[in-house]
Write a protein that binds this DNA or RNA. Structure first.
Lengths: 240, 240
DNA sequence: TATAAAAATTGGTCTAGACAACTATACTTA
DNA sequence: TAAGTATAGTTGTCTAGACCAATTTTTATA
């Protein structure tokens, strides 16, 4: 249950415990949780610690609180949406599709001005340019180009890209990706896009540019994607 | 500064104070804030109260913390993005455009099945259908259709819609809008859209469907919008 | 029985500490 | 000089309460 001697913070243990209960169905949407004081009593911890766990779960959309009434389980979160910041692979899996990838270009180029600005490096500094066709159930879903500063992320290879870029950046290099900005716009396929995505020229596509940052706002990656509009919708949950 | 006798919570006062300093430029991105203990000392409040304010600001993307180092001001937030859930009016103003609106239809209809499902009401129950052309600097920006349950939101009139729908729902009726789900997709303009938006048939448009909910997950509104792709981009910041 | 008042219950705010974990700096030592 | 070591400063976690605000339940009263 809760181990007070564990190096894992108590509030975090409680968070996971409640999330588990929600996912297993022990707690259903609309259910009232036991009151904060009862958790404190049950686990012999301070009510403030219980509140720390609850507050996080409220922020993440798992629970909501009503003063004087109680704390309740929120409705099922979107299949994929909300916190977002998933990789293409995670995104497709969440949609029940089998993700695939086809590398069509991997090289180091001098950073074009726009990319340099986004990555907060000097124009002309070396950047990896990684072009991939992203597949879902073997069918082209998006054409994706990733730019990463060579100085910040060293030792990138085709093999790493084909395995998992994020795992390398977060796991091997130890960067902690914290947040991202996405810009979404509608357009129609040009000749190149139509070819790679197997759609007609002029067919609608969704352009998504994603800039990814570490906790201290260091830009780590810029990704420009063209999604087939007939196969892809972007879903997002927002708190007021 | 901070008034301990005010009914306004101290942590909230401190939040606003720091946000002001950031907006006025007294605190610039990258700057370290005074340590938590110093705030506690300065204002003669508990450090936990300071932390409550800081934590909110970190969640909202204004600050970030580095253990052992300090708390810092994050980079400027997107001009409009992030928490989103702004009205069209707010959205346009944030983009430096003058919002306008042209009501083209206001009636009560029996809810179509899709809308009924989204609003969690029975098919055929009465709903307001409000069609508007949304203008930015006098030029059409989007074609927007709003559906609201007559049973939930009573007494809606053309005049209210023309003034401010949100103000009526939140202010007059006392509902507290809490969160929303948006689904974004790309398409091309059909005949109706091209006419109302003054674009060619086949020109790219961005479709946004927004479902709005109260804290207890009651659906309150469904809005379907068609934005001119040449004038509108959707921007969103996400935390991991 | 119906209504009003009181009590209990629940989340919201706040205190005044304690110690842990992490970082940077100054200092000591090999 | 270089490497290790103490120290101070910072955020992170946690306690054991207190009182407030909103809601629900119980009790008293007409």
């Amino acid at each position: 249950m809760i181990n007070k001697n564990s190096p894992i913070p108590i509030y975090y243990q409680l968070e996971e415990l409640i999330k588990d209960q929600i996912e297993k169905g022990d707690l259903k949407p609309g259910d009232a949780l036991p009151p904060e004081r009862e958790y404190a009593e049950t686990y012999q911890i301070s009510r403030m610690t219980v509140r720390q766990a609850f507050t996080k779960l409220v922020n993440d959309g798992y629970l909501y609180r009503l003063q004087g009434k109680g704390t309740f389980v929120a409705e099922r979160k979107v299949e994929q949406g909300l916190q977002g910041l998933t990789s293409f692979t995670e995104d497709m899996r969440a949609r029940g599709l089998e993700p695939g990838s086809q590398l069509i270009n991997f090289e180091v180029i001098p950073a074009p001005v726009r990319i340099a600005k986004s990555l907060a490096i000097d124009e002309g500094s070396p950047v990896y340019e990684i072009k991939r066709i992203r597949l879902a159930d073997q069918v082209p879903m998006a054409l994706e180009t990733t730019y990463i500063s060579v100085d910040k992320v060293k030792g990138l290879t085709k093999e790493i890209v084909n395995r998992s870029l994020y795992e390398y950046i977060e796991g091997t290099l130890g960067f902690r990706i914290d947040h991202a900005r996405q810009i979404i716009e509608s357009s129609v396929a040009n000749q190149i896009e139509s070819e790679f995505l197997s759609i007609k020229e002029g067919a609608p596509i969704m352009l998504i540019q994603r800039n990814t940052y570490l906790e201290d706002e260091t830009p780590i990656e810029v990704v420009k994607s063209s999604y087939r509009a007939d196969r892809y919708k972007f879903m997002i949950d927002m708190k007021r």
